[in-house]
Amino acid sequence: MSFASLILALVTLQRLGELVLSRRNTERLLAQGAIEVGAGHYPFIVLLHAGWLTALWIWGRNQDVNLAALAAFVALQGLRLWILAALGPRWTTRIIVLPGAPLIASGPYRYFPHPNYAVVVAEIALLSLALHLPVLALIFTVLNCAVLAVRIRAESRALSVSDWPRISTP
């Protein structure tokens, strides 16, 4: 197995693990009375990420690895973990709103409104560049930004509904 294949296997396992965690958290939140918002664009997010990973496996599995880009990608995993810790059981890959629940304003959310999306944009570019695939980095970064433009609008609307009282946590 090449070093690039090992990296791709680890990232693929990470993403699959996150889908399991997301499903579990989504089910718990829905059982507590939460609602999903903006579900119509979710299949495009899944398709985009599956397409990106598939493309990396097809064209990147035997590439040499750019260690600087890989190091930056690995550093982003620390931010990803910080985001997961800050959101805890409210982290999902969907937009799930629990009416009356406080907005998360701790961890990276204290400094930036959508840190997870910034991390994902950087991850898509950096892992592609780590495998010397600049065209894939460009294509999937542009596609991801287009999907995120829709998603961030939907999420911002969902979190600003005035009849859902909430407070910020310290």
Score class of each variant (00 low, 15 high):
169 T>Q: 05
34 A>S: 14
2 S>D: 14
105 A>G: 05
118 A>M: 13
137 A>F: 06
106 S>D: 15
37 V>M: 00
8 L>D: 09
100 G>Q: 05
52 W>D: 00
30 L>V: 09
128 S>D: 01
71 A>L: 14
27 E>V: 15
139 I>F: 08
161 V>Q: 14
20 V>E: 11
169 T>L: 06
144 N>C: 13
97 V>R: 03
79 L>H: 08
118 A>L: 14
33 G>V: 03
21 L>G: 12
39 A>Y: 15
123 E>H: 01
59 W>F: 11
161 V>P: 02
91 W>S: 07
74 V>S: 02
122 A>V: 09
165 P>R: 00
54 T>G: 15
86 A>P: 13
142 V>W: 10
132 H>D: 13
126 L>S: 03
26 T>G: 00
111 Y>Q: 12
10 L>Q: 12
2 S>W: 11
27 E>M: 15
92 T>W: 00
155 E>P: 03
114 H>L: 01
64 D>K: 06
169 T>C: 14
44 F>P: 08
121 V>S: 15
72 A>T: 05
14 Q>R: 08
18 E>I: 05
10 L>F: 12
105 A>N: 09
85 A>R: 11
124 I>G: 03
91 W>E: 10
26 T>N: 00
166 R>M: 06
57 W>D: 04
109 Y>P: 00
154 A>F: 07
27 E>K: 13
133 L>I: 01
93 T>H: 06
127 L>V: 04
47 L>S: 09
33 G>M: 08
41 H>D: 15
104 I>S: 01
155 E>V: 03
30 L>M: 11
108 P>W: 04
